[in-house]
Design a protein around this nucleic acid. Structure first.
Lengths: 219, 219
DNA sequence: CATAGGATAATTGTATCCGAAATTCGGGCA
DNA sequence: TGCCCGAATTTCGGATACAATTATCCTATG
């Protein structure tokens, strides 16, 4: 029950989703140009929906588009990554605190179910999607639509690097442990513990992402 | 030195700016449909840039767009307005704190200049633009591009209501006083005072905007 | 008389085509 | 040999034309 695809989604929005996955998967290196014509041919559509999808991804911060000069995958500087995590700490901390008293048996079961699904996720992209779903369910009871949208927005430019951290010597288990600790703290209604765990969770992720970002090379 | 219009701006982005102003000015009532054809004719362009501008404004939260069903001015519920102000308090507070030690003679002079210009602003839209410029200059030294972008994004859905508060019995003077107090606190390097003044500034604005939003009527 | 059904009109989404800007490549010149 | 300048090519932004979807209104029927 992520976002119930009731609307069949227009070509442009569907394409935006496919492109987001492709970027997360490393289909284009940061700085590499995304040719409208090429994408249009690849997905069998015209350039119009391609342009709209690119504009969407630009507004999400995944692409940098220059006038008449094409779109390229953004290469966030480490300071920007740092800033994004600072913002996430603020906003997600607030969301978690507000959600805490509003969780019930049902929402807690849902959290456990999502985490179990996350353990079974085999491909990296599926894991990212599942992680987003988990955190959305965690923050959902706060009833803060704008903050939740911001949470998604702040993750978008980051997830591309998180994917790389899901390799062989994965942090997957560590993240899973922290998720379960979060569930326990929420179930116990322990705000302080939940906040501390979330902060540790995000700080650990920050380190991993910064490393992946730095290892990305220059050119 | 707001955002130096070096790029001549594409038709779509220029149109997005015009439409944003038009929405702030109340050209469309909340809930009212924005017809692509009509806008295209009105501004003498085709529907393509209109669509891109509408998508942009949607991503800014000013419009709600449904597939094949048109775009309409969003009518934020009071709880959402409240949420937006809570987020602004967090983010702008953080920005101000980080900017505090980095202001110098030049940036302070610039702030005074911007505030003087604000006093002379006669039309309401110009005042909003000037207020945004002032706060951008206030937060600029923090060197936090993402947070600054968020600041703009969080204001966008709100400013439409602030404009209404600039009427006859205006809060303009109160805002100007608070701005000058902010400058003084920043010049003195008094973080606590600056934070307090900013919070009061935003809380006062919140009350005004909530009133304007409520007075908007239902249908 | 109210309501369900369908034809028609209005509006959005997408494809194709054209002009504009930029990159690239080749030639002239110091 | 190296640099600068200009034309051809590539690619992008916008306009026009067509297809898909939704809204409206009229009619027929209970």
């Amino acid at each position: 029950m992520t976002t119930a695809r009731l609307a069949p989604a227009t070509t442009a929005s569907a394409l935006a989703g496919r492109l987001r996955e492709a970027i997360d998967a490393g289909r284009w290196r940061p700085g590499e140009l995304l040719r409208q014509e090429q994408i249009a041919a690849e997905y069998g559509v015209s350039r119009i929906p391609v342009r709209e999808a690119l504009a969407q991804l630009q507004s999400e911060g995944l692409l940098e588009v220059a006038h008449y000069r094409g779109a390229r995958v953004s290469r966030p500087r480490p300071e920007e990554i740092d800033e994004l995590f600072d913002l996430r700490l603020m906003i997600e901390g607030d969301l978690l605190a507000r959600a805490l008293g509003r969780h019930d048996q049902r929402s807690l079961r849902e959290l456990k179910r999502l985490q179990d699904a996350l353990d079974d996720a085999d491909d990296r992209l599926g894991w990212i999607a599942g992680d987003i779903a988990f955190h959305q369910a965690l923050y959902g009871p706060a009833q803060r639509p704008r903050s939740l949208a911001l949470f998604r927005q702040l993750r978008a430019p980051i997830d591309r690097f998180s994917v790389q951290a899901l390799g062989p010597r994965s942090r997957k288990q560590g993240w899973a442990d922290e998720h379960r600790q979060l569930i326990a703290a929420v179930a116990a209604g322990d705000a302080a513990a939940a906040g501390t765990i979330l902060e540790g969770h995000l700080q650990a992720t920050r380190a991993v992402v910064l490393a992946a970002c730095a290892g990305q090379g220059e050119s």
